[in-house]
């Protein structure tokens, strides 16, 4: 029985709140949040892109802070609210960042989009009216190999205009 084996009877579990739902997963120090979300919980919105925190395709929110799920030990999520891209829309209503990305077609292959949208959401919540420079800085960790940055910038600006003060 190896450490971190998902099927092993857990000696201890830890409690996570993901998109408002409480769930228990085995406590394993070497397991990353991304693996738990994608493999154990079937929340595949956050993507694997590099495994070293260079692409931000795995971005989720811990409380209101965007983190790289591929670098986040599962224990760090304990007692905090995890929000994945699947949890951004409320009752099927897209949040302003999601709506702006969809309306402007601010994606091509779409693989970076969940991380990008989560990152943009965090930015707009902490800074509802970011300058272009602030958007570039906040999202600089996010790679889009399709090169869709021009349209993504436009989408975040539109989301800021649309969201007013209540994203």
């Amino acid at each position: 029985m190896t450490k971190g084996d998902s099927r092993a009877p857990p000696t201890t579990t830890l409690r996570l709140t993901i998109n408002g739902k409480v769930t228990e997963v085995p406590r394993a120090p070497d397991r990353k949040l991304l693996e738990v979300l994608r493999i154990e919980l079937g929340l595949t919105g956050a993507k694997y892109g590099c495994g070293e925190g260079e692409c931000a395709a795995c971005t989720v929110l811990l409380d209101e802070v965007p983190v790289l799920a591929c670098q986040t030990p599962i224990g760090q999520a304990e007692g905090r609210k995890v929000t994945t891209v699947e949890g951004l829309a409320v009752h099927g209503r897209l949040n302003p960042a999601q709506r702006a990305f969809a309306e402007l077609g601010a994606f091509q292959c779409g693989y970076c989009t969940p991380g990008m949208v989560v990152g943009a959401t965090a930015l707009l919540r902490s800074n509802p009216h970011p300058s272009e420079e602030q958007i570039r800085e906040a999202l600089n960790g996010h790679l889009c190999r399709c090169g869709g940055y021009t349209r993504i910038l436009r989408a975040v600006r539109r989301a800021a205009e649309a969201s007013g003060d209540a994203p």
């Binding site: 595949t44 694997y48 994945t84 709506r99 990305f101 969809a102 077609g105 949208v117």
Partner: peptide, 21 residues
């Protein structure tokens, strides 16, 4: 034109090969 079905990209519901189970 916008295809309304592309909404699944921004909600994380679009399933890529690596998301398949």
């Amino acid at each position: 034109t916008v295809d309304p079905r592309d909404e699944d990209v921004v909600t994380g519901r679009r399933i890529y090969t690596s998301d398949l189970h």
